[in-house]
């Protein structure tokens, strides 16, 4: 018990803990839709693309994460637009937009005269240096996204399962598509504060994919994903405190480990020996 409470005596650890929990829940819920819609690349793309938003925020002396959020949401809508209106496949649209935006980010950063720790924190995550303002933005963003997901839940599920029929039923498919993209963008920027843009996918995809191994009911899948995500985030945070390793990396590693465990115990899978090709006697 002492080992669990000891880190919490520090303010930065309390903020880290709260931020990590928010991000864990948020990514697990949205991750379920990302996994089911098979658009895993979107998290990675938006995370990398958000670099330019950060750099712009820095240059304009705005709050980095607020600027990053707005910029990345716009980026997500642009990807959706390119895909829907220009008949570019979704993967390709992500590839084009994110590389262009990331290039812009790198160009902007290279033009800055001094090295900025803020931006490296963004790349690799800096959960331990979350400020009070950052935390407020994180919690507000998380709250709004979870509320929207709850309100439009049945329509989001309908679109994920069968877009054409959803449209036939009069569901505003295009609006929901853009809404989901904008929510993912915001979640990605929020998550990048704990695990960094390089490892955002670890929180967006891995817990949802792990839960997917364990159940064939969507509501259960989301709840299990939230559980796995929280377990990964908190154990990762403690591991980082006691082992003195980067917190983002340690959270991502915990999430991956949980995926392996979920895979082994998945009722959907054949026994491990069989799927590895060993003959059963």
């Amino acid at each position: 018990m002492h080992y669990l409470l000891e880190p919490l005596q520090y303010g930065f650890m309390q903020r880290a803990m709260l931020g990590t929990v928010a991000v864990g829940v948020l990514c697990a819920v949205l991750g379920a839709f990302v996994v089911l819609k098979k658009i895993a690349f979107i998290g990675e793309g938006l995370a990398h693309g958000s670099l330019a938003g950060l750099a712009l925020g820095y240059l304009l002396h705005a709050n980095l994460y607020l600027a990053g959020n707005v910029y990345t949401a716009a980026l997500a809508l642009l990807i959706g637009f390119l895909h829907q209106k220009m008949r570019v496949s979704f993967d390709v649209a992500i590839g084009i937009i994110f590389s262009a935006s990331m290039a812009l980010g790198v160009a902007l950063i290279s033009s800055m005269k001094f090295y900025t720790t803020d931006l490296t924190g963004y790349l690799f995550g800096s959960v331990l240096s979350i400020s009070g303002t950052d935390l407020k933005i994180m919690l507000a963003g998380t709250g709004v996204i979870l509320l929207l997901t709850f309100l439009f839940y049945k329509e989001l599920v309908f679109c994920a399962f069968d877009e054409e029929m959803a449209e036939v039923s009069g569901v505003p498919r295009t609006f929901l598509h853009y809404l989901l993209l904008a929510m993912i963008a915001t979640a990605v920027v929020i998550a990048s504060q704990t695990v960094g843009i390089i490892l955002v996918t670890a929180l967006l995809i891995t817990p949802a994919a792990s839960a997917y191994q364990l159940t064939s009911r969507l509501e259960r899948m989301i709840l299990i994903a939230v559980g796995i995500s929280l377990l990964a985030s908190l154990s990762g945070l403690y591991a980082s405190y006691y082992l003195n390793i980067a917190s983002g990396a340690s959270i991502a590693l915990c999430a991956s480990l949980l995926f392996v465990i979920a895979y082994i115990f998945s009722p959907k899978r054949k026994p491990l020996g069989k799927s590895l090709g060993f003959k059963q006697r």
Partner: peptide, 11 residues
């Protein structure tokens, strides 16, 4: 139940 989505409307 998805067949009911349209007549239920949003929310």
């Amino acid at each position: 139940m998805q067949g009911r989505t349209g007549s239920l409307g949003l929310l």
